[in-house]
């Protein structure tokens, strides 16, 4: 991957890639692996970007797909190599990645959501419009609006009234 491509095409969107990768990983090591894999896949798939959507939308979609694929792969590997007890045990591990404690708590709550709900709320928090989220997730804007409300309620419950 040329440093030019990384600097001009990936780095401006690194923020959202980091945010998404953080939401799908429990450890720093996994996070770095996911981030690297996303950057690599963006670079490898760059010729497939046809300009039908914005470059940023395409990156979000790709990042989500890669994270979901990696998480599925990881689950399968765990099922092969570890007992159910060990999976649950590892799942409770906390990863305090940010200096802001509220943000850490929010992330822990987001990680408790389903994989698709995580994607929806991350895009919502990035101030993406329902239409764009729907385009990325592959559903209708109405469905997204309903989902976002439901997710926010769930997050409130998970954060135990620490938020409005």
């Amino acid at each position: 991957m040329s440093s030019d491509f990384y600097t001009s095409s990936i780095l401006p969107h690194a923020g959202i890639i980091i945010k998404i990768c953080r939401a799908y990983t429990d450890t720093q090591e996994d996070f770095e692996d996911y981030f690297q894999e996303v950057c690599l896949q963006i670079w490898k798939s760059r010729d497939r970007f046809r300009g039908d959507s914005k470059w940023s939308t395409w990156i979000y979609r790709l990042t989500l797909n890669i994270c979901l694929t990696l998480i599925k792969k990881k689950k399968n590997n765990r099922q092969h190599y570890t007992s159910e007890y060990e999976i649950r045990d590892e799942g409770t591990e906390e990863n305090r990645s940010f200096s802001d404690e509220s943000l850490n708590q929010l992330y822990e709550a987001i990680k408790k959501l389903s994989e698709i709900d995580r994607a929806v709320i991350l895009l919502y928090l990035e101030e993406k419009r329902n239409k764009e989220i729907a385009e990325i997730i592959g559903t209708s804007p109405n469905n997204i609006a309903v989902r976002v409300n439901r997710i926010k309620e769930r997050l409130k419950t998970l954060l135990d009234g620490k938020i409005d």
């Binding site: 890639i17 200096s99 509220s102």
Partner: peptide, 24 residues
């Protein structure tokens, strides 16, 4: 003061170190 999740999200990432990309 209680904060909304939108606020937590916005203010949490003001810290520049929060979004430092790992080295490839």
């Amino acid at each position: 003061m209680e904060k909304s999740i939108e606020n937590i999200w916005k203010t949490g990432f003001i810290d520049h170190n929060a979004l430092v990309a790992p080295k490839i």
